[in-house]
C-alpha cells in the first residue's frame, strides 16, 4: 500500500485521538482491542486479508482443524460452516473464502472460556475452498474444504 503524507497524517491523528480517549478512561481496554479490522475485511487477496487479521499470510496445514460445510451448496447466500479444533490455546478462528470479492468472511476472538467450536452461515459468490485459520499459541494453522456453489450469494 502506498501511504501518502496525507493518509499518514490522518492515521496518526486518529491513533492520537484513540490514545487520548483511552487515557481519559472513555474507552475500556476491551473495546480498544476489539476494534473491527476494516482493512482485513476490505482486503482483496487472501494473503493480505490473512496478514491483516491474523498477523501472517502463511499458516501451517493442520489435521487438527475440522471444517463442516456442505460438499454442494445449492444457495451460496447461506452456507453453514462449522469450525472445530483440538489445537490448544486457541486465540482466534477466522474463515476465508478466496473466491469472494473480499476473502475474509468472519473472525472470532476466542478465550479459554469457550470451546474451540463455532458455527456460522456465510455467503459464497461461487465454488471455492473454505479456509479456516486458527491462531493457537501465537502460531497460525489452517485447513480447507472445497464447497461447490450452484447459485451464487453475493450479488442479487
Amino acid at each position: 500500500m502506498i501511504q501518502t503524507r496525507r493518509t499518514f497524517l490522518r492515521a496518526s491523528l486518529a491513533a492520537g485521538a484513540v490514545a487520548i480517549a483511552a487515557g481519559a478512561g472513555l474507552l475500556s481496554p476491551r473495546s480498544v482491542l476489539a476494534a473491527w479490522p476494516k482493512n482485513a475485511f476490505e482486503a482483496k487477496s487472501l494473503d493480505e486479508a490473512m496478514k491483516t487479521v491474523a498477523g501472517a499470510s502463511s499458516a501451517t496445514a493442520s489435521k487438527d482443524i475440522e471444517i463442516e460445510a456442505p460438499d454442494i451448496a445449492e444457495n451460496g447466500a447461506v452456507v453453514s460452516v462449522t469450525v472445530k479444533t483440538s489445537l490448544p490455546n486457541v486465540e482466534q478462528i477466522s474463515v476465508f473464502v478466496p473466491k469472494n470479492n473480499n476473502p475474509l468472511t468472519l473472525s472470532y476472538n476466542m478465550t479459554a472460556n469457550v470451546d474451540s467450536f463455532v458455527t456460522s452461515r456465510i455467503k459464497m459468490r461461487e465454488t471455492s475452498d473454505v479456509i479456516a485459520v486458527v491462531k493457537s499459541g501465537g502460531k497460525l494453522y489452517s485447513s480447507k474444504k472445497p464447497v461447490k456453489v450452484t447459485l451464487g450469494g453475493c450479488g442479487g
Binding site: R30, A34, W36, P37, F41, V53, A77, V78, V79, S80, T82, V97, N100, N102, L104, T105, L106, S107, Y108, N109, M110, T111, A112, N113, V114, D115, F117, V118, T119, S120, R121, I122, K123, M124, G153, C154
Partner: peptide, 27 residues
C-alpha cells in the same frame, strides 16, 4: 457469560442475512 466476555465475533458483509451463531461456553 455472567458479565464476562468469552468470545468476540468480527463479522463482514459476507455473513448471511439473519445471522446464525452457535458456540459452547465452558464452566
Amino acid at each position: 457469560h455472567n458479565g464476562k466476555t468469552v468470545m468476540t465475533c468480527m463479522w463482514g458483509p459476507a455473513v448471511s442475512k439473519n445471522p446464525f451463531l452457535s458456540f459452547r461456553v465452558k464452566n
